[in-house]
Design a protein around this nucleic acid. Sequence first.
DNA 1: GTTAGCATGTAAGGAGTTACATGATTTT
DNA 2: AAAATCATGTAACTCCTTACATGCTAAC
Lengths: 216, 216
Amino acid sequence: MRGRSDVLEPAILGLLHESPMHGYELRKRLNLVLGSFRALSYGSLYPCLKSLVERNWIQGTESLVAPQAVASKRARIVYQLTADGKEHLQQVLASSGPATWEDENFDVRFAFFGQTDAETRLRILEGRRTRLTERLETIRQSFARTRERMDEYTLELQRHGLEQVEREVRWLDGLIDNERGLRRTRPAGTGRPTAADTPAEDDDVAPARTTEKERG
Amino acid sequence: MRGRSDVLEPAILGLLHESPMHGYELRKRLNLVLGSFRALSYGSLYPCLKSLVERNWIQGTESLVAPQAVASKRARIVYQLTADGKEHLQQVLASSGPATWEDENFDVRFAFFGQTDAETRLRILEGRRTRLTERLETIRQSFARTRERMDEYTLELQRHGLEQVEREVRWLDGLIDNERGLRRTRPAGTGRPTAADTPAEDDDVAPARTTEKERG
DNA sequence: GTTAGCATGTAAGGAGTTACATGATTTT
DNA sequence: AAAATCATGTAACTCCTTACATGCTAAC
């Protein structure tokens, strides 16, 4: 029943958990968290905020802020999480389904790793890794099957895509190693998540599944 | 007036230009061209084919194919470009607007570079490059502005994103060099598009614009 | 005093998804 | 004979976008 995401809602809740904000500011921050700089429109943001208020996960309070100590600016609506909202956010960040491992959903989860425990982080990183190695398998197979009768540019596009995914897997490997280290040596949530010192120039990124199941 | 794409239509036309096909087969090939392996659904494909037929860009003919020389299989509808369709495809592949430089649109254009001339290829590669350097600027600026008060994971996500975009720019540079070479030495459309032998480990990817315009 | 940026919204619509529905053919 | 895969479609829905509408405030 779910579309590709609902990437917006978790992102909003996550940002508001870090600090209360009004819509206009949220949008700017959102464009960074959502990664690919697809300028999010107000036409999505405000209706979403409205529905979050209705479900009682956030609440908005008019604030007459005077930034240079001047009187009476136009009221801005500053949103913040309710108790219900905090609880819900924790559930969302910890939950994982098939959609969790897709690009944008993963990015949002990852951006708010600071608000979860090491257990959850590891689970999500590994789920993402599995998803990516599945992709690698699919690409490699079609690569092998159709190499001959394929246009050179199409081929180059796929070679490049393959490389990008391989690189992302190595990035994840670094992060996973790091989380494992954290879990063994420290209680939780300390230490920098800096990635991949592992050179790892090898090509075997786990066999995973070989089945090329249809998913449509 | 255009949404993020209409990535499907050009992709279908491009594939059918390479060779006639029926819907089911199209879908599989489509999933590779469209890159990120977002399994395209029949719910999008068949209505799109229908509308292409209505606009007289493709035509479908029932074919009673018997693959192992056996009689009477169920009829499959094999689609092929009409004359109008071929003309339209050329226009689409050569045209370039703001949407052309976005990820998926670019991928589709690139996948069918074989069906265009060197002039067009170069224009599209350079447009894409400009778009990416704009992104780099945006990321770098927000990076510099908010580095301190930002979550470590969010930071790592952005660092990684930055790296991926930088890598993509270098990939484009290789392709652009290659196209330029082709244009100088050969008539058009010959030679392999193999990328970046240029090591180019430098970091200056062109200043481009510094303005952080709103686009919403 | 007018342009640029801050701030909040609504209405209509586009591009795609999931879930459903059906049936033929091939493989086990 | 059952299961998998080939093959074609429709209906309802979701998430997000564009375009529109409004008004305040800062800077030039």
